[in-house]
């Protein structure tokens, strides 16, 4: 069964010289520093407005590399398939993974498939790894934020989480909202072209913007201050969050980044982000401060301030 799937679905889609050899591992030459990452994708439903688990897996892995300033080169994809998944659905997911990889200029050089009995997985799980090269002089890390840096957000928050949630059983509501699922490697390259003072990059996925900012504040031992009114949120996302009792700050994104950039370069980097189609609504949302290390504070719309903490537990819809 698995062998058959490889021949019929995976090889034709991911065709490249490394994979075509069907050896136990891919061999390739590289130069310089490498970035290496892994992730697993268990999103439900596996198809959602604006993407599917295949595109999500590739974009997510590419973004993990891009957030280190790396140029994505090689990916691996492993599929754990629940028995009974329709073949046309698998084909669609594999095709969209390949399209996403090609867009990012990355090659899928190894993979694996396992079919497990009904009930042993929820339709389809995808595990990935990714390798990229890090150009010389690049030093981007969650621990590099410096007091005075500006905090730049590349666009609206919460689109992915709300788009996926709108499709869940029992929560289904109609919205034209699409997931923002996208690879950010080109945006990062454009940012690095205009500035060598980009200190941190991170994509606010699970846990949302709030969790990402808290992670950076803790890692860099700095305070972060943001302003609620500067954070772009789509009206549909805000409305859905109000209805469900969520805070957009904690809702997942899959095609956004947060950058900590030296103040003197901030406008230039913002311009570079905005020139990219995925970053048109980018904004400077705050700055890194000498405030209490690890603490994120937000000026609210009405001029008060509050602490923005990490996401704790899962977000669940409220009663009323």
């Amino acid at each position: 069964m698995s062998h058959d799937l490889v021949a019929r679905i995976f090889l034709p889609a991911f065709t490249n010289p490394h994979l075509a050899k069907l050896d136990d591992a891919a061999i390739f030459d590289t130069q310089g520093r490498l970035a290496f990452t892994t992730d697993s994708y268990v999103v439900t439903p596996i198809f959602f407005p604006g993407g599917d688990i295949g595109k999500l897996a590739v974009c997510g892995t590419v973004n993990d590399l891009a957030m280190m300033g790396a140029v994505p080169l090689y990916l691996t994809l492993s599929f754990i398939i629940e028995e009974g998944l329709p073949e046309d659905e698998l084909q669609a997911i594999v095709d969209s993974a390949q399209t996403a990889a090609a867009d990012a200029g990355a090659m899928i050089v190894a993979g694996d498939t396992k079919v497990v009995p009904h009930g042993s997985a929820d339709r389809l799980f995808v595990n990935t790894s990714g390798i990229g090269t890090v150009p010389p002089q690049i030093d981007i890390s969650g621990s590099n934020a410096r007091v005075g840096d500006k905090v730049i957000l590349s666009g609206t928050i919460g689109d992915h989480g709300i788009a996926v949630l709108s499709q869940r059983e029992g929560l289904r509501f109609s919205t034209t909202l699409q997931s923002d699922c996208a690879s950010l490697d080109k945006m990062v390259a454009q940012m690095l072209e205009v500035s060598s003072n980009i200190h941190c990059l991170r994509d606010p996925t699970r846990g949302g913007l709030a969790t990402t900012l808290n992670e950076i504040a803790a890692q860099s031992r700095v305070g972060i201050r943001i302003e609620e009114d500067r954070i772009p949120v789509r009206h549909e996302v805000r409305a859905a969050c109000d209805m469900l009792g969520f805070d957009p700050l904690y809702v997942a994104n899959e095609g956004k980044l947060v950058a900590m950039v030296a103040a003197e370069d901030a406008e230039r980097v913002l311009g570079a982000i905005r020139r990219n189609n995925l970053g048109r609504e980018a904004a400077i949302i705050g700055e890194v401060t000498a405030g209490r290390a690890g603490r994120v504070v937000m000026k609210t719309s009405i001029g008060a301030s509050r602490i923005v903490d990490m996401l704790v537990g899962d977000i669940l819809p409220r009663i009323c």
Binding site: G291, R292, V297, A304, S305, R306, D309, V312
Partner: peptide
Amino acid sequence: YYLYGVQGSAFKVPGF
């Protein structure tokens, strides 16, 4: 109280 940082009286939120 937990989520919005009213976790104790020991600190005050830096003011705007």
